[in-house]
């Protein structure tokens, strides 16, 4: 499922709350693809018409005080049904645009995808919305791992015993929603860290974790 990124960084707090409330309602529809993100890149950016600074987004949707005949405008006060209808049309347009063949120099999205051979470290910025992880235990486990610590894909694969490609897919999914921070840390082979906490020995900890998972049928 492709997540479409909606940005509202320039709106007032009351309108931010209003738009977030609308999105909660829309998210009851399992086909709804949009998510509000904290930072760029944006597929759509919702702005007040007074915003004059350069904004970087696929499409800019402008709020106006009165109804406008211009495309990509919505009048205030913002109405749930108007925004939902506009988002559905924008989703349709974006999907069609992405299906069009692109010249090689215009494929930044593919270039930005994390390759399974990547040696970068990935850290989760914020816990993902339920639509991204669902109750898939493997995805939840991967998100949990990188919520705690920046890890390479090979480290994620070794810990979760999943293929590198699956780890890359989850990281790309989270990254597409703006939830991943990439850290270029020194490249070191995976080793067990120092002991600490309730476990005196890290191998004891690993054995314990495996034992609990076996007991729980995981």
């Amino acid at each position: 499922m492709t997540i479409l990124r909606f940005g509202i960084p320039h709106l007032s707090d009351p309108e931010v709350r209003l738009v977030k409330a609308f999105f909660r309602l829309y998210s009851q529809d399992p086909t709804f693809r949009w998510t509000i993100v904290e930072g760029p890149p944006y597929d759509v950016l919702l702005v007040d018409e007074s915003v004059s600074e350069d904004v970087v987004a696929g499409t800019v949707l402008t709020l106006t005080p009165v109804k406008s005949e211009l495309p990509n405008t919505l009048e205030r006060p913002l109405r749930s049904d108007h925004l939902e209808a506009w988002l559905k049309k924008a989703e349709y347009d974006l999907r069609n645009a992405r299906l069009q063949p692109q010249p090689p120099e215009e494929q930044p999205i593919d270039e930005q995808r994390i390759d399974p051979t990547s040696s970068s470290h990935f850290k989760l910025r914020r816990w993902p919305p339920p639509a991204l992880l669902g109750s898939n235990p493997v995805r939840v486990r991967m998100a949990t791992l990188i919520s705690r610590r920046a890890l390479r894909l090979d480290e994620m694969a070794a810990i979760t015993e999943q293929p590198l490609a699956e780890c890359a897919a989850v990281v790309n999914l989270l990254r597409g929603a703006g939830l991943i921070e990439i850290q270029d840390l020194p490249d070191k082979p995976m080793t067990m860290g120092r002991a600490g906490g309730r476990f005196a020995d890290q191998s004891v900890k690993q054995s314990f974790v495996s034992g609990v998972r076996n007991k729980l049928g995981l």
Binding site: T144, L145, K188, G193, Q202, Q206
Partner: peptide, 15 residues
């Protein structure tokens, strides 16, 4: 419970 275990694992490995 599995998410607790994953956090224990994350503390075991990584940067």
């Amino acid at each position: 419970i599995d998410t607790l275990l994953a956090q224990l694992e994350a503390n075991t490995f990584g940067a």
